[in-house]
Design a protein around this nucleic acid. Structure first.
Length: 379
RNA sequence: GCGGUCAUCGUCUAUCGGUAAGACAUCGGUUUGUGGUACCGAGAAGCUGGGUUCAACUCCCAGUGACCGCC
């Protein structure tokens, strides 16, 4: 399923064979949480930006449109008209962060997590088994175990108990996964990959323990769980680096929620293969644009974030800036429009501005990952 | 033409005979397993001319302008 093509120190370039096609690693997935990347049609994601895979969220798809609609449509791929590989996140992060923030919105027990829909207040139950069943119904290429991601500022004993629950639930997820494969008569070459998620906060001993136990259960890949940013907003470099080393080399390493471009480059150099993040789309919608300061091909040699800068197109200084947004970018925004025009779109709160900015930022991320892969292949 | 009401940041509205407050807008910043979200910070005002007073954005008079009503 996953084959490493080349290695350099800890980083690697590889290829994953999935039922809906191949994906080269490392790669970045935009978050199509509710079945869409906001404002961007899938054909743009595929043809204009060249993205290999995207991420949807079990929790959001389950709430809306709901699994009845997905089943009627013939699965998430058909519903969304996305033919390339699809990964579903378990929804653990959303449900748990909801409950950790506001305990009134739900309850976590050993067996299940009960939560109220923020949409209509209706009550729902998620168990490890249900989370896996939903992801089979979605028909994705890669799925993620239901985990318990505690906030990083929790005391160590609470993080440790979240680790234990994550391990027990991962075991239940794996068993349900095997059961679903049999019941649905899914052949080995068409089976979705399944990922466990490593918790443990900033504590290396907990991360190691969690990784070891998950490896015993056995998954295709392992994710870095919870936030990888500390309370001060700094990238938890040591924990992310060491945790990669706790994962077997032939397994996929999924850095959930990473991150800024420099964090992705760091993670790649630590041996992580897969990334997803809201930054390019969300920040694009809010007017922040990623601007290349070097040629894309040189990205991999730079880890300090100096290979790009950001601009806030809302700033008044762009009112009469008739230059390209990014001299080194050939996306539809940069080819066709000026900074002044984009500024005008944002000042007018026109959705076209958010859309073009998100497309540009996704192109930046896609090019960054292509740069990492090409650099590796040519060396 | 007559009568009435009003005049405060870009806009809308407070307050006060003794440091003029807020909202929206503007301008910066923040956003990490999706919030077109929320938060943080900054700049920004007493129509004009007289008078009363130690002191006037406030009280009085005139001018100017806006709105409302009536012939």
């Amino acid at each position: 399923m996953f084959e490493i093509i080349s290695k350099n120190l800890n980083s690697r370039v590889g290829v994953i064979k999935l039922k809906n096609g191949e994906v080269k690693t490392p790669f970045f997935m935009p978050d199509a949480t509710r079945g869409f990347v906001r404002s961007i049609d899938n054909s743009i994601l595929e043809k204009e930006i060249g993205l290999e895979a995207i991420l949807i969220n079990t929790y959001h798809m389950f709430l809306n449109p709901g699994m009845e609609i997905i089943k009627q449509a013939g699965g998430a791929h058909k519903f969304m008209n996305w033919s390339r590989p699809l990964l579903s996140d378990s929804g653990g992060y959303q449900v748990f962060s909801l409950i950790h923030k506001n305990p009134k919105l739900g309850k976590i027990t050993e067996n299940e997590v009960i939560f109220k829909s923020p949409l209509d207040g209706s009550k729902h139950i998620l168990t490890p088994e249900i989370a896996i069943q939903i992801q089979f119904d979605l028909g994705v290429d890669m799925m993620v175990c239901l985990d318990d991601p505690p906030p990083n500022d929790y005391p160590k004993e609470k993080i440790a108990s979240a680790v234990e629950r994550t391990i027990r639930w991962a075991d239940r997820c794996k068993k349900e996964y095997e059961k679903q494969l049999q019941e649905r008569k899914i052949s080995p070459e068409n089976r979705p990959l399944i990922f466990g998620v490593i918790q443990g906060g900033e504590y290396l001993d907990l991360r190691k323990h969690c990784a070891d136990e998950l490896v015993k259960i056995g998954f295709d890949g392992y994710g870095f769980g919870a936030r990888h940013i500390d309370a001060q907003g700094n990238f938890m470099e040591e924990v992310v680096r060491e945790t990669a080393g706790f994962i077997p080399e032939n397994a996929l390493r999924f850095a959930l929620g990473v991150g800024t471009p420099e964090d992705i480059v760091k993670c790649y150099n630590f041996g992580w293969d897969m990334f997803d993040c809201v930054i390019p789309t969300r920040e694009g919608r809010h007017g922040r644009l990623f601007i290349r300061s070097v040629e894309t091909q040189n990205f991999a040699s730079l880890q300090d974030g100096k290979f790009y800068k950001t601009i806030n197109i809302n700033n008044g200084k762009y009112k009469n800036d008739f230059s390209r947004v990014d001299e080194n970018c050939d996306c539809m925004l940069c080819k066709n429009h000026t900074r002044a025009y984009l500024h005008h779109l944002f000042a007018s709160k026109e959705m076209l501005g958010m859309r073009l900015a998100a497309i540009h930022n996704l192109k930046f991320y896609a090019d960054l990952l292509r740069g990492l892969r090409n650099d590796k292949l040519s060396s």
